[in-house]
Nucleic acid binder design. Structure first.
Length: 430
RNA sequence: GUCCCCAUCGUCUAGUCUGGCCUAGGACACGAGCUUUUCAAGCUUGCGACUGGGGUUCAAAUCCCCAUGGGGACGCCA
């Protein structure tokens, strides 16, 4: 039975890089029908905070990586580490140095069979008598890590390749303790656009920030999986279940990947476009409420129609409020440039007034009927339909870009459309 | 400095293990076009890479060595 773990320390938010490590562990566990466990490495009491722990848990939940067993907290296991250290001292494999405990280094060459990289060899000279227990009684990272992985019966340690050099130290501890050494797989780190370690100066780094910025968790998961791994058949869009089905540690790249926000944006747009409109409306709703575009009383059907209309035009959820605002506001603001370009010509305004008059007999006020009316009116005026379409779009939405005019008019409704055409042409009702 | 890892388009990658099917495939981004009611989306298309040098071989992106470049680790942090 495969058992893997993700072991964050609650000294910061869950960032992109750690999330990717967690994801690879989770994918491997699910692919192998194994268990995915979580261990909180909170031995650094000063830097560990509940706030961070909560955020990490929330992030993992949002990403859909559910854990299979109870959380393990290192801070609750301090006695266990001390006992293990005492055992080593009794066996003559470790010694005290003041209040601290050090292991006696091993003399043989250490070989690691890395599941993604093959054999890695370490010269024993790099080893020294590593500290196991610090003077304050808490264990060092490498010691606690080994004890816990053994207790949790972890079969595969999948972690960032910045841990490669910890591996020989940990193997030395496993062997001193007479414990079975798990399999290791080191995965490359994610870099910033400048090739250096991904950090805040490259933009958002925490998972929750991405949620805040309007990304879908499916898109983030898909994107993260594609950083350092590929299914091998040119597919780019893979659901969680596709990923679980195809994931394999030996296909994980050895090279570090540079975080490419353009591709994330594209992927997110793809997911938004393919999402069920009802579901999309549900996730967009709170964002609209937050921006005061809608309040508690809103027409669910209208919202669903609107997200459907704009879903190919956005790459992140937070772009919806700007697009949808004209359909809800009582007080439409029109872009100066747009007005200047399409609504300042007297002839145009007269034509709009005429069309508006024709429109009053259009019933039901639906896109096909509106279009029909538009084309007929344009023909009778001897102008092209677009000479009515563009000015009207500005009149009702305030901008030159956006969805198809007739769909917009249908959703907006006759009353609002008329009111805005009147506003824009300076003519009162009739 | 020492040790470890890595090296295909600007970026993410397929191909490398098991040399020939690779005049190196796909995706993002960018350019052009189609469509057209603007903007998107979609479709077609263009641009664009095997780090360098030595081997091995009939044949190398693929195997070996060296160089160079990038990354990581060298804590009583995790």
């Amino acid at each position: 039975m495969v058992r893997v773990r993700f072991a964050p320390s609650p000294t910061g938010f869950l960032h992109i890089g750690s999330a990717r490590s967690a994801l690879f562990n989770w994918l491997f566990a699910r692919h192998e029908n194994g268990k995915f466990l979580l261990r909180i490495e909170d031995t650094d009491r000063a830097r560990s905070k509940d706030e961070y722990l909560n955020e990490i848990m929330e992030s993992l939940k949002w990403l859909g990586m559910e854990t299979d067993e109870e959380l393990v907290f290192q801070s609750k296991r301090l006695d266990i580490y001390k006992d293990a250290a005492d055992r080593l001292i009794n066996d003559g494999k470790a010694y005290r140095e003041g209040d601290a405990v050090r292991i006696k280094k091993c003399e043989e060459k250490i070989r690691v069979q890395d599941l993604s990289r093959g054999e890695i060899e370490f010269d024993p000279e790099i080893l020294k008598d590593e500290v196991l227990i610090k003077s304050d009684g808490t264990p060092t990272y490498n010691f606690a890590c080994v004890i816990d992985d053994a207790d949790m019966k972890i079969t595969h340690v999948i972690r960032g390749d910045d841990h490669i050099s910890n591996t020989p130290k940990q193997i030395m501890i496993y062997e001193a303790l007479g414990l079975e050494v798990p399999k290791f797989a080191h995965i490359p780190l994610i870099m910033g656009p400048d090739g250096g370690r991904l950090s805040k100066r490259h933009g958002a780094t925490s998972i929750m920030e991405y949620k805040q910025l309007g990304y879908l968790s499916e898109a983030i998961v898909n994107f993260l999986a594609l950083m350092g791994w590929a299914p091998g058949d040119n597919r780019e869009i893979l659901s969680r279940s596709d990923l679980i089905k195809e994931f394999s540690l030996k296909d994980v790249n050895k090279t570090s990947a540079i975080f490419n926000i353009d591709k994330l944006n594209w992927l997110n747009g793809q997911y938004i476009k393919e999402m069920d409109p009802g579901k999309l409306a549900t996730v967009v709703m709170p964002i609209l409420q937050e921006k005061n575009v809608i309040n508690e009383n809103f027409d669910r059907e209208k919202l669903t129609n609107l997200v459907e209309l704009y879903k190919t035009r956005v790459r992140t959820l937070v772009e919806f409020p700007t697009h949808l605002n004209p359909f809800y506001t009582k007080n439409l603001k029109r872009e100066e440039e747009a007005v200047k370009k399409y609504l300042e010509n007297d002839e145009t305004r007269k034509n709009l007034v005429k069309w508006r008059r024709e429109l009053s007999s259009v019933d039901p006020f639906v896109k096909d009927r509106i279009e029909d009316s538009c084309r007929k009116t344009a023909a009778s005026l001897g102008i092209k339909p677009k000479e009515l379409i563009h000015p009207t779009r500005v009149a009702i939405s305030g901008t030159t870009t956006g969805a198809g005019l007739f769909e917009m008019m249908e959703i907006m409704g006759k009353e609002t459309v008329f009111q805005r055409i009147d506003e824009a042409t300076g003519s009162g009702a009739l």
